[in-house]
């Protein structure tokens, strides 16, 4: 079969093809062994990724968060931070604040995809639509003694962090601020006995 078929026009049916294949069991490979290829075109994209904060108002119904997360995981978008809470109890509305990183095309897609979702009342891109305010809250536990403990307390004061809890061997600080401020605080506290950090994710509102 291998020799026979060589040079034959592919568009012409090979008369005894199926019968020959049957006689031999599974059809055999013919010609040189070529590496496998594919039928989708994979293109590398080099657009610069941007970080955007999106604010989405949704019906607070069962599964709504799963829909949002499913949209991001299913289509391969990033979630850098996610904050959800019911904000208007009488209308059962929740505000979802999502920080995401993607190329401009992807950011546009994310917004368009949100408008297709049934429980979504509205979406705004706080990064693109003008000035906005972003804050995050962190709880930071520091366990140290002696000089380090004193230094931790002094630095916390400089950051306007509040002492929520204190024992003779640890502090828990509460710090509110921008993501950068919290990152900086955590970095500074690391050598001073940082034990645990808990962060809320971004809460953000448009200033307009």
């Amino acid at each position: 079969m291998a020799k026979e078929a060589k040079g034959r026009k592919a568009a012409v049916p090979v008369k005894s093809g199926a019968a020959a294949a049957k006689a031999e069991g599974m059809p055999r490979a013919r010609g040189p062994v070529l590496p496998p290829a594919s039928a989708y075109f994979i293109e590398e994209r080099h657009d610069r990724a941007e970080r955007h904060t999106l604010s989405v108002l949704v019906d607070n119904e069962p599964g709504v968060l799963a829909r949002v997360i499913g949209l991001f995981s299913g289509r391969g978008y990033n979630i850098d931070s996610l904050t959800v809470s019911e904000t208007e109890h009488s209308r059962h509305l929740s505000r979802i604040t999502i920080v995401t990183t993607g190329t401009p095309v992807v950011i546009e897609q994310i917004k368009a995809q949100f408008t297709r979702m049934v429980p979504v009342h509205g979406i705004s891109d706080l990064t693109a639509d003008g000035p906005s305010i972003e804050r995050e809250l962190a709880l930071v536990k520091i366990a140290s003694i002696g000089e380090k403990r004193v230094e931790a307390l002094r630095l916390a004061d400089a950051f306007h962090a509040e002492v929520l809890d204190a024992t003779i061997d640890h502090f828990i600080f509460e710090l509110t601020g921008t993501t950068e401020k919290i990152e900086q605080f955590v970095a500074i506290m690391t050598p001073l006995g940082l034990q645990e950090v808990c962060r809320t994710g971004i809460a953000a509102l448009s200033r307009r």
């Binding site: 060589k6 592919a10 568009a11 594919s38 989708y40 075109f41 994979i42």
Partner: peptide
């Protein structure tokens, strides 16, 4: 096109770049 392909052209129809596909 159907009338101008042989088995050989089919086998080599997809170039190196096209082989980076799924």
């Amino acid at each position: 096109l159907g009338d101008e392909v042989s088995d050989e052209t089919i086998g080599s129809a997809i170039g190196a770049a096209g082989k980076a596909l799924v």
